[in-house]
Design a protein around this nucleic acid. Structure first.
Lengths: 223, 223
DNA sequence: AAAACAAGACACTATATGGTGTTTAAAATT
DNA sequence: AATTTTAAACACCATATAGTGTCTTGTTTT
């Protein structure tokens, strides 16, 4: 016969768990994953660290649960609905890329998670990566692959470069001199220049790779 | 009257300093900057850690000296000479971008340094960043800016996205599932797809942005 | 060869860090 | 209301880590 978890004014299991999870979030936003130390988390949460082991089994348990309960990519799904697709996904793609760029610049936590993913091997992060790939796979296979036909993979490769560029530029702007290739990534002008570049590249990619296009000779002469 | 540093068979200042610097390099390559701990460095070097403080003043001193003595971007300077420029730097740009992509994929240490730069504030790393910007600035102002004229900044923004993409994709391939946007970045096919995409994008950028071009209407209609 | 110096071995300190055992009292169950 | 359970406080332990003091002996200087 299991007993209900304490939910009083002083002893409240659920509230304490939440405090831990919130502390993890706060640390991740400000100091990044390297700041996730037991003592610090407990101090910030205002709950004894012993409870971390009671509730989550271990520090890793807490961290993994935190990752699992967050939805870092919620913005994409939200944007998916309201753009009609009758241009092979051209405007839709632009919207996705550009909104990703803005979203990431505002969301320090996601920046830290991206960095974390590049720095540490962790099952829960890997799961996050896999889910992201799946979600992307749906977009490609349903929207752009049919449009680009034999050039589908070429569009995917372009997408990879653009998304990767968007990720890196945002992380770079946070931690480095903010000037990259002579573009000041912290000013509106600089950020707009990047957005224009992305828009331009997508336009050109649709122009040059669309299945019934006639001018794709340049593509073949690589490497 | 200062005395010559010991250079015998058993006690050899220069040799020991080198051992420390080599240990730092090895650790950076394999474990990344987070593995740079005094005890571990000393153990790997086979020299007492006390000497780190004698020679370099502190752990940070050693690390900074290591960074200062390395030339992480040597490959670029080497490539600069042997490509004639009479096409506004189109082929030259391709070569730079593509060789960066290959070089970075082979050079784990540089990958770790790029990651380090995104993770930690450090004067010596900042200096490295500034030098890199300077070197890029020379290329832009001498080669591509004159060619693109009023669109010079647009080309810089495209470059920023491409270089950033190249950086991120290489780091991603090392630490994540290696599949990004459906492209397997660890296979030759996947890597070639990325290279073709970069080549394609540069071609299209030169087509669309060259100063005397007539078809740059698409550029204006951004955001 | 003797003296002066410094490279290095080794033991040590202080602090940070992850994790546990014991006791208390608040909350759930009876 | 009595009993049981467990949230949480508190003191603890083990290990990792940066950094220092001391002594020995190889190397340089005289």
């Amino acid at each position: 016969m299991k007993r209900k978890p304490a939910s009083g004014t002083f002893r409240n299991t659920e509230r304490s768990k939440q405090k831990f999870l919130s502390a993890v979030e706060k640390i991740l936003k400000t100091k990044g994953y390297a700041g996730l130390k037991v003592n610090y988390i407990a101090q910030l949460a205002g709950v004894d660290k012993k409870m971390i082991y009671n509730y989550f089994g271990s520090l890793d348990g807490l961290i993994d649960e935190y990752i699992a309960t967050q939805d870092f990519w919620s913005n994409i799904a939200a944007d998916m609905a309201h753009t009609p697709i009758n241009d092979g996904g051209k405007e839709f793609s632009k919207e996705i890329f550009l909104s990703q760029y803005d979203y990431l610049s505002k969301n320090k936590e996601l920046q830290k998670v991206l960095l974390w993913r590049l720095s540490e091997e962790r099952k829960s992060l890997r799961k996050l990566t896999d889910e992201q790939e799946e979600s992307g796979e749906r977009l490609f296979s349903q929207i752009t692959d049919p449009h680009f036909g034999e050039h589908a993979e070429k569009f995917r490769a372009v997408s990879a470069v653009l998304v990767a560029g968007i990720y890196y530029l945002n992380m770079y702007a946070e931690h480095n001199g903010s000037v990259f290739s002579g573009i000041d990534l912290k000013t509106d002008d600089g950020r707009n220049a990047v957005k224009e570049a992305v828009t331009f590249l997508i336009d050109k990619t649709y122009d040059g790779l669309t299945a019934d296009s006639q001018s794709n000779t340049t593509i073949e002469k690589t490497i």
